[in-house]
């Protein structure tokens, strides 16, 4: 289910940019944990069960690898725990390793969610007006890729029937696949030139042509956008005034537990968990309507 994905592309873009800015560039442990947990919950809602299992198998080892190797690179910190090859392994370095693992895995999962939500049509819609020629090239490329893939399979089958790919040696494979690729290139170049002629004939680039889109800005979008921008303003004020300052070296600083800092944590936490909440709400509504039928 993609309830969050039904919002307007501009709303989604503002949302992802604000979350990613904090997730990537702020080193406060609380904010990082909030971002990671928001990302995990959101991606669980977006993905199938089999995908989730695969992701767990990828992200947990990655997390451990980053966390464990950090003390080997950095010997800063004032609390040595033990010595390894004459170099101190400090408590601070271990904690910092865990913190950067939280950050990296969090950012990667956020980008995964971004990829799931921001499909190419939304991307093109957003940038189409600002960069018309580039987005034309992009949208043509998005169309050509599946077209060429299909053509590639056709050429491949035909070549196989003619006796290519018969031996198992690497050079032979490289040679046969590159000759198939060559056939592809000449076909696609010639074919695409027809496309450009037909575009010209239909008046591409003339004044007054409009493009069709399905996206409309609803009142829900305005609400979400306003909420997102205002919560982000609160978060950034907190960051700018040093409320969320946090450092690991030479010793780990105390977490700021003042009420104003807690407001910042709540503000960013709300942003981080927003997509999850929207997805859950939609899923519940769906279940409820089904049970009524």
């Amino acid at each position: 289910m993609k309830a969050f994905g039904n919002y307007h592309p501009a709303t989604l873009m503002i949302y992802f940019i604000s979350v990613l800015l904090v997730a990537m560039f702020v080193s406060n442990l609380v904010l990082q944990l909030l971002s990671l947990s928001g990302a995990i919950l959101f991606s669980v809602m977006l993905q199938k069960r089999s995908e989730i299992l695969g992701n767990i198998g990828f992200y947990i080892p990655l997390f451990l690898l980053i966390a464990i190797t950090n003390p080997l690179f950095s010997h800063n910190g004032v609390t040595p725990l033990f010595f390894l090859n004459g170099n101190p392994v400090t408590f601070e370095a271990i904690i910092y390793g865990i913190a950067i693992a939280v950050m990296i895995v969090g950012v990667m999962i956020w980008f995964k969610c971004y990829g799931e939500i921001m499909s190419s049509d939304k991307f093109l819609y957003l940038f189409g007006k600002a960069i018309p020629k580039l987005s034309l090239v992009l949208s043509m490329a998005f169309r050509f890729i599946p077209l060429f893939k299909r053509q590639l399979q056709k050429v491949n089958k035909a070549q196989k029937a003619l006796g290519l790919y018969s031996s198992k040696s690497f050079m032979d494979k490289l040679r046969s696949s590159s000759s198939v690729f060559m056939a592809m290139i000449s076909w696609s170049l010639e074919n695409s030139m027809d496309t450009s002629d037909s575009m010209k004939a239909r008046g591409y680039g003339l004044k007054g042509r409009t493009t069709f889109t399905l996206f409309r800005l609803y009142s829900d979008d305005i609400v979400l956008m306003t909420l997102c921008v205002s919560l982000m303003a609160i978060t950034f004020t907190g960051i700018a005034t040093g409320l969320t300052d946090f450092h690991y070296y030479p010793y780990i600083s105390n977490l700021n537990r003042s009420p104003s800092a807690i407001i910042i944590y709540i503000a960013f936490g709300t942003i981080s968990f927003l997509p999850f909440v929207i997805e859950v709400k939609e899923a519940l509504a769906w279940k409820y309507y089904i049970s009524k039928i």
Partner: peptide
């Protein structure tokens, strides 16, 4: 730019993505 050039760039981009 001529449309032909735009199409050509699109083709080269798609080919490199496919590769």
């Amino acid at each position: 730019n001529d449309i032909k050039k735009l199409v050509l760039i699109a083709v080269m981009v798609s080919l490199s993505v496919i590769s």
